[in-house]
Simulated assay, not measured.
Amino acid sequence: MALKSLYGPVEVAEGCLIGEQCTIGVPKESRLRAFQKGELTEQGSVVRLGERCLILNQVVIYEGVSISDGCVLEDRTRVGYDTRVGSDSRLIYGAYVCDRVTIGTRGRIAGFVCDAVVIGDDCTMMGDLVHEYTRPHEGWWEVDEPSPRIHDESVVGYGARAVGGVSIGPRSYVAAGATVTQDVPAEHVAVGVNDFTPIRDWSGKRLRSLIEHWSGAPEN
């Protein structure tokens, strides 16, 4: 059996454009292992690409992925198996999205997103969302560690890092380069290492427009 025959089927909606050198329906490792052992009995899960999506160049999409209407996957992005991407979201700057991830509507996603992360609506994530990886002696697949969760309207800035099963937001901002290993409460700004400030007490000017938007106050 040729490897290509292990790929999942692909359903492409009207108006979806796919660029050059894309690989769609890639089989997950468990099915490849079953094939090696002569135990493969199931077909790959369907990939669904919604209306008006732009899948640009050298994009890799694994089996079971669902990309909703109006999404853009920029060059060299990767989407792991059984991931769900909400409508009008963008995967940018070569985003590496692992398996079983959920991304809400109107997201802007870059960086590294580990398995089973949940990202809400209207979020920007440009850092790294990673597991603690505190039990490497128990094997690679045997341990299912808690994953970060990013709630609606929150931002994880460029080079920031959330570690383990932390919760961020809603309407919280993790500044570029910050590290969080604890929950970031709703409507807080995180800087440095676990240094949190309520948005009502934030004195910096650069986030003032965003904070006013979150608060529903008119911008000056």
Rank of each mutant, 00 (worst) to 15 (best):
V10D: 09
G177E: 03
C123D: 06
V191A: 02
I103H: 09
T179Y: 08
L73N: 06
V113Q: 06
S68A: 15
V65T: 08
V180T: 01
V47C: 10
L210S: 08
C53D: 10
R206P: 00
D121E: 03
H131N: 02
T105M: 07
A217T: 14
L56F: 05
R100Y: 11
L54H: 10
Y7T: 15
I199D: 02
I103P: 05
V79C: 07
E145P: 09
G157Q: 12
Y96L: 13
N220E: 13
E132V: 12
C71Q: 11
V10E: 07
Q43S: 12
S89N: 06
V97Q: 04
I61W: 05
G164I: 01
A190S: 06
V166H: 00
Q58D: 04
Y81M: 10
R161Q: 10
Q36W: 04
S215G: 12
Q43N: 12
P218T: 07
T83K: 12
D69F: 01
G25H: 01
V101R: 02
Y7M: 15
E74V: 02
A186R: 13
K4Y: 07
C16Y: 04
V113Y: 05
W141K: 12
P146D: 02
I109V: 03
E29D: 05
T41G: 12
G192K: 10
K4W: 07
F112A: 06
A217Q: 15
V26K: 08
P185F: 03
G111K: 05
G192N: 09
V72F: 03
R108A: 08
I55F: 09
L210F: 02
E138A: 09
M126P: 03
V60H: 06
Y93S: 10
G70V: 03
P146L: 02
V163H: 00
R78Q: 09
M125S: 09
I103Q: 03
A2N: 14
R100A: 08
A178E: 00
N220D: 13
